[in-house]
């Protein structure tokens, strides 16, 4: 019988992840939200759709930091971390696109509109998918790590203009675009903030947990290859 107790000393952040994500779902459904025409109850998507993008940004930025550290230190561990952080970020980004599409269908009336914010987000995801393809197409480990790290810096630097700068230069349906400061109507509401900020931390920590598992499995695998 396996012991069911959790090693809290090293895994306390996993407990926080669980608490925050559950709080997000329960609180996200039950708190009072501002009454906004058309958006109505779907404003609660902020705790799920918007936090996907915020968490993605945190994870991809961490991936960038590990890529830079790999280039300066050439440690394989940094390459592995950069890879896994980027993969989890891509997953959150794809979830962000999918949930945004659903939200758009029921508030703007179409699954996809040719909007600077939406197209920019789609292009970002394609650029990051190219990162995955690039990694998988290079056999030599050191070469792969170096080229992937350089590409990661390029990919990350397209994020800010495509997601935040360009949409603000044009008209956009998406909140936070078209010259407005981000979250003008929603962010003023303190009730939304009460769940929104914890939700970002919760989803990010949950992503971190999955990243840690994948890194541990990969390290075991490479150790196994070393002794055999």
């Amino acid at each position: 019988m396996a012991k069911l107790t959790f090693d809290l000393k090293n895994n306390w952040w996993k407990l926080i992840a669980v608490i925050l994500v559950l709080y997000t779902v329960i609180g996200g459904f039950l708190i009072k939200v501002p009454r906004i025409a058309i958006v109505q109850e779907s404003v609660r998507n902020q705790f799920f759709h918007v936090s996907m993008w915020f968490s993605m940004m945190i994870l991809l930025t961490t991936s960038l930091i590990f890529s830079i550290r790999y280039l300066s230190k050439s440690k394989t561990k940094f390459d592995l971390l950069a890879e896994e952080f980027a993969y989890m970020g891509i997953i959150l980004g794809i979830l962000g696109l999918a949930t945004g599409s659903i939200w758009a269908r029921f508030t703007w009336g179409a699954w996809w509109v040719n909007d600077a914010k939406l197209n920019g987000a789609a292009i970002c995801m394609l650029i990051y998918l190219a990162y995955v393809i690039l990694r998988n197409s290079i056999e030599d480990e050191i070469q792969r790590a170096r080229i992937a790290a350089v590409y990661n810096i390029f990919a990350w630097s397209t994020l800010l203009p495509l997601l935040y700068i360009l949409p603000r230069l044009t008209d956009s349906l998406h909140p936070g675009s078209g010259g407005n400061p981000g979250f003008n109507i929603y962010d003023l509401d303190n009730n939304l903030r009460l769940v929104f900020y914890p939700s970002i931390i919760g989803w990010t920590l949950l992503g971190l947990w999955i990243i840690q598992l994948r890194v541990r499995v990969k390290e075991l695998k490479s150790k196994l290859e070393d002794i055999s």
Partner: peptide
Amino acid sequence: VMVVTVILMGLILYLIRLDKKV
């Protein structure tokens, strides 16, 4: 809320099991 919580708890329990296995 209960249904979503159950789904999320299921996924989290799965993640905990996976963690233990690793």
